[in-house]
Amino acid sequence: MNKETFLEELRGCLEVLEDQEQQDILEEYAQHIDIKIQNGQSEEDAIRDFGPLKELAAEILEAYHVKPEFGEGRGRKGLPGIGSVNLKAGEKKLRGFGTALRNGLAAAGNGIGRAFRSVGRAGKRFFCWIASPFRKRREAGEGRQDGAAEIPEINRTERAEAGKAAPYGFLKKLGHGIGSLICWFLRLCWNIFWLFFALCTGCFALAALFGFGMMLILLFQEYPLGGATLVCLGCFLAGGSMAGICMSLIRRKEQKKEADKGPGKEPAEGQAGVSSGAGAELETKEAPEESEPENDGDREPEEEWQEVQK
C-alpha cells in the first residue's frame, strides 16, 4: 500500500468526524510517514508499522467515544473513501439544487411583482401624459424651474428602479412591452384627435387669410371694409395659432437625443403657449419648430413628455 491509498482509506473510516478533525489526524499521520521516509524507511514499511487499518481507525474513534462498529462498518464496504466522497458530492449537489430552486422561485416572484409595478408605472405615465398638456400651459408661464426639478427626480427614481430590476430583465421587459403598447395606442388616439382638430382650424385660418387678402384689396379700392379686414385678420391669426397648438400637442415617437435640445426649446414654446394672441410670432416660432420635426421625427413638443417618460 502506498501513502496516498493509506491516507484515503483512513479518511474513509473517519467520515463520522468533523472535517477539521479528519484533516488534523491525517496531517499528523502524513507527517509521521514523511519523517520515516526521510530516515530511510520505505513507504510500505512505514505504513505497515501502523498495523491493520481498521483497528487503527477503531482506536482513533475511541478517542471521540464513537461506537467502534462505525469505523468497521465503513471499512467493510469495498472502497469506503470513494463511496463517501460521492455521497458528499451528491448531497452538495442536491443542496445546491435546492438553493437554486429557492432562488429561482424568489426571482420569479419578484419578477412578477416588478411586471405589475411596470404596468402600474405605465398607467401612471399615461395619466401624466394626458394631464401634461394642461400642466404645460399652466407651468409655461412659471418657466422651466418646476419642470427641471421634476425631471432629475423622475430620472433618479427610474434609474434606481432600472438598477434594481436588472436581474429580472426579462419580466421587466415584458411589463414594459405591455405598458408601452398601451401607451402607444392611447398616444395614437390622442394624436388623431388633435390632428383632426388642427386640420379644421388650419382650414379655417386659411379661409380667413383668403378673406383678409380680399378685404385688403377691396379696402384699397376704397370700399368701407376696414372693420371686415381686421376681422378677417383676427380670424386668420386665431385659427393659425389654434392649429399650431393642436400640432404641438401631437406626441410623436421619442428619441432621446432630442431631450438635449429640450431645455433650449421649451422656453420658446412656453412663451408661445402663453401668448396665443400674438399670432405672427407664434407662426414664425411654431412653423420652423414644427417643420423640423417632420425631418427629425421628434421635437421639443415631445421634450416634456420624453423627460417625464425618462
Binding site: I25, H32, D49, E55, E59, E62, A63
Partner: peptide, 29 residues
C-alpha cells in the same frame, strides 16, 4: 511532536506506532 514522542516511548517499551496517535488524540480531547 508525534514522531519524536513515538521514538521516546519506544525506548521504554516496544509499542505499535499506530496506537500512539489515537492515544494522543484521546488525551488531547
Amino acid at each position: 511532536y508525534g514522531y519524536e514522542l513515538v521514538e521516546e516511548v519506544s525506548k521504554v517499551i516496544d509499542v505499535n506506532e499506530g496506537t500512539i496517535y489515537p492515544l494522543l488524540k484521546r488525551l488531547t480531547n
